[in-house]
């Protein structure tokens, strides 16, 4: 079923045009191509994909916080309506000085995504127009989607819980105790 002809052709074209400016070039699976580039080259890559190869649609810009490797990873997800291929363009941004190029002149809808990332991760996009507040209001703490922002601690400081439910705070643990199941160590933090 998975005839990867179109995907391999795209890979070939990109490799010839950008040479060593892009790396990690691979076909992830049917209809999905993955590549990685740098903040200096991202605008060139996106413009080339849009204007020359027909990837007209920017589906999403997402951000991943790799706190252990001290970087943010921006993922630009593009879609070709005729070839039906998703291209995932990834770019790394330094976590201590997070600055990424503003691309809302290529796709106007990128403006909203970038404002959201500015608010939720604190990534700066030079020349980005728009109000500073998008979703949050009067926020004066760390950007809340960063992984070093401790949600639980913030909640404990700012809100109070209703008493009476102390025995069943950890639902997952209660169920596991009842059935004799063992929760692995890494899953304990996220099994509340």
């Amino acid at each position: 079923m998975a005839d990867l002809q179109k995907e391999n052709l795209l890979l070939e074209v990109l490799k010839n045009h950008f040479n060593d400016k892009i790396f990690d070039l691979k076909v992830q699976r049917h209809q999905r191509v993955h590549l990685r580039t740098t903040t200096e080259q991202i605008e060139a890559v996106l413009l080339y994909l849009k204007e020359k190869l027909g990837y007209k649609h920017l589906s999403h810009i997402s951000c991943v916080d790799w706190i252990e490797e001290n970087r943010f990873e921006l993922v630009y997800i593009l879609w070709h309506p005729e070839d039906k291929i998703n291209v995932l363009v990834k770019v790394d941004v330094d976590r201590l000085n997070p600055v990424a190029p503003n691309i809302d002149y290529i796709w106007p809808q990128a403006n909203t995504y970038e404002r959201e990332m500015r608010e939720m991760f604190g990534i700066q996009f030079p020349g980005l127009v728009g109000r500073k507040e998008l979703i949050l209001e009067d926020w004066d703490d760390l950007p809340p989607m960063r992984r070093d922002f401790d949600t639980l601690q913030y909640v404990m400081e700012n809100f109070e819980f209703r008493s009476g439910r102390e025995d069943a705070q950890n639902v997952r643990e209660t169920i596991a105790k009842r059935t004799g199941e063992e929760i692995p160590e890494f899953a304990k933090k996220y099994s509340r």
Partner: peptide
Amino acid sequence: TINGGMYWDSYNTIKQLDK
């Protein structure tokens, strides 16, 4: 609204409405 529900550890929702 009673005790935060599934948003009990969300930074952006209140936990007890009657406060």
